[in-house]
Design a protein around this nucleic acid. Structure first.
Lengths: 145, 145
DNA sequence: CGGGATCCCACTGGATACTG
DNA sequence: CAGTATCCAGTGGGATCCCG
């Protein structure tokens, strides 16, 4: 993994349109619970990292993807990819050849989620130092007490 | 919890400025690992929900906050709040009275993170149906096989 | 009221080995 | 190559009790 993912201008434009959309405050409470669940599923560490790598590289085979997602075990890679495929975030293409060849790429839905997460990545990159400073400060205060 | 949080126009504007900023592709790889860690920490379910509730309500006491964050145990509430306080996301104010009174509110840093997450909330609300459709489709395909 | 301390379980997720 | 299957340790997180 060599950098924060770069999404296309169209994807970023989509994210901005989302941000401008009227806040859905009038949501059914039951719907809201579902949204919370979805957030919980989607805000997963590996999901976000896979989203980033696929957003950056386009199409990747299983093993290569595993190499690019730093630190992921093959079990979690399989598991997360299945989950994402089920949720319609990634498309899985199997070529019936020997040895097997399987390619993964983001669906438009997956790409739009990647764009939505873009702001969080940027926030993290921009505020990393500030968070670290806050931690040092907090820990020192805790010591003296 | 009664709705997706509403952030101020200024906060949303900040998010948009973030989105416009040049992608930090030239990051030090070590820095990138730190960013990934930070993402992992911050993309936590309870953190996101607390962020939402505090963003919506402003200032809250411990017990009230626990009521508003649907389903959280007191242990996780304490733990997550400490974490967020350490990271500089929430401010904790203790009033030396009996019985104790402790108030929590977002710091500017916490509010900016909330704004960054706003896009993800909206994405989830907008694409919930589509994800559910994808799941049904996936599950039915799996059955026939 | 706002936690801290403990106990305990379920599940997450890593390592390893095997297969079509 | 792209998984599946198995085993196992760590820990996320709930329940309970207690204290200042």
């Amino acid at each position: 993994m060599s950098g924060i993912s770069r999404f296309t201008p169209e994807q970023i434009a989509t994210a901005k349109r989302h941000a401008k959309a009227t806040p859905p405050d009038d949501l059914d409470p039951r719907i809201e619970a579902l949204v919370n669940d979805l957030i919980g599923r989607v805000a997963d560490k590996w999901t976000m990292l896979i989203l980033e790598v696929l957003g950056e590289k386009g199409t990747l085979r299983f093993t290569r993807l595993g190499e690019l997602v730093e630190g992921i075990s093959q079990k979690m890679l399989t598991q997360t990819l299945r989950q994402m495929e089920r949720d319609g975030l990634v498309a899985r293409t199997v070529y019936p050849v020997v040895p097997p060849k399987v390619e993964y790429q983001l669906t438009p839905l997956g790409a739009s989620l990647g764009a939505a997460f873009c702001g969080v990545w940027i926030w993290a990159a921009e505020n990393l130092k500030q968070v670290e400073r806050a931690r040092v400060q907090f820990d020192e205060k805790a010591k003296t007490v």
